[in-house]
Design a protein around this nucleic acid. Structure first.
Lengths: 204, 204
DNA sequence: CTGCGTATCTATACCGAGTATGTATTCGCG
DNA sequence: CGCGAATACATACTCGGTATAGATACGCAG
């Protein structure tokens, strides 16, 4: 519902038509998040269905202008007042991939991690370059939003890189533990020659 | 396509039916990502349509068993070999909210940030508690995957908290800069009245 | 042993986000 | 003039995700 609320918040600043909303939204995120125009119209249609916005009469050029309703205004206020709750963790493709990979036989997890790390660092560098180029408008200019978005992307990419390093060191430690099957770690080392969890889940 | 590939990778280890796949998937992520069973069937149906899996004859109990095809196997290999590329930044609700909030009139951004920070810290603590409880199976046990997932969630939550702090300090500096419009900050303060990088991305 | 709840198993309808495409008009510009 | 880009709206489609329905099997309390 992020898009819906975002558009609603824009409409809270005054009536607008679809294309205008698309442009406003993209401007605020510095083009980081291009919005498909079709999505704007369907989202507006759904918001209208739910009584959050209403169509005004078309303007001089025949454009369909939308206006926020009282109900919509309340919804925007609620959206801003309530924090985003991460009850269900967002499904991240990389995390899924690694979770499956470490438990699947015959997957070279270390290669996977290293390939991914290189890619993540590439992303991170591209973002950093963008940030340097676009440098710091310390004022309250309209670019602040775009900077915040950019910095969020950087923080996330850094977290991803750190996690990949962490995964790698964990893999190394697991490997070391497996290769020194002497005691000294009572009961932890898996029995050599067999893969734990040969069964799994829905035992038939 | 994360779900599709995840299920495909599971099928790469041997034929299975829908419910089994759901259970396997959830087991590998320690229940972090409950998978709606309906999604499994539709995903399997689409994968079958695309020639990645095929139905075997129903087993003794009449369950619909799927098998991966050669094409599917290639797809899995490709998935593991290629890194996840973040070409288009994922749309994060919080980031959208803040980007809109800082440019919207009449939104108390600092309150928003603080409310969100409290919520993020709550999430982070809950995750940390989980991690401590479930503690470290340093072996190659079946819990490794679940630990990785959990740690990823923690890293992400930490990044979010750090970002919120960063946003707050940026807001403070902007406020300070606005309240002391004297110089004394050579070259940093933007020329009053104009915004650098007015173009950028989707130039309006 | 009867029946109630829970787990297993499949299936379909629906929604929202996202993409692709089609169509028409306006506007800058060589 | 005309061509391409920008503006503007609309629809069809895919995919991930949720809700719900319905069927059978199983444990176990009364």
């Amino acid at each position: 519902m992020a898009i819906r609320h975002g558009l609603l918040a824009l409409l809270d600043e005054g009536p607008a038509y679809g294309y205008q909303l698309k442009a406003s939204f993209e401007e605020r995120t510095g083009g980081t998040w291009p919005l498909n125009i079709g999505q704007v119209y369907t989202t507006l249609a759904r918001a209208e269905r739910d009584g959050l916005v209403a169509q005004l009469e078309a303007d001089d050029e025949g454009r369909v202008v939308y206006e926020i309703t009282d109900s919509g205004r309340r919804e925007v206020a609620r959206w801003f007042a309530e924090p985003v709750r991460r009850e269900v963790a967002p499904r991240d493709e990389l995390t899924i991939k690694l979770a499956v990979a470490v438990t699947a036989p015959g997957v070279d997890v270390r290669a996977l991690v290293q390939t991914q790390r290189a890619e993540t660092m590439r992303t991170l560098q591209a973002l950093t370059r963008l940030k340097i180029d676009a440098d710091p408008p310390l004022d309250g200019s309209s670019d602040t939003a775009w900077h915040l978005v950019l910095e969020r992307l950087i923080f996330d990419a850094e977290a991803e890189a750190r996690w990949l390093d962490h995964v790698e060191s964990r893999l190394l430690r697991a490997k070391a533990a497996a290769e020194t099957p002497d005691q000294n770690d009572p009961g932890r080392g898996p029995a050599p020659g067999r893969t734990p969890r040969a069964e799994q889940g829905t035992a038939r």
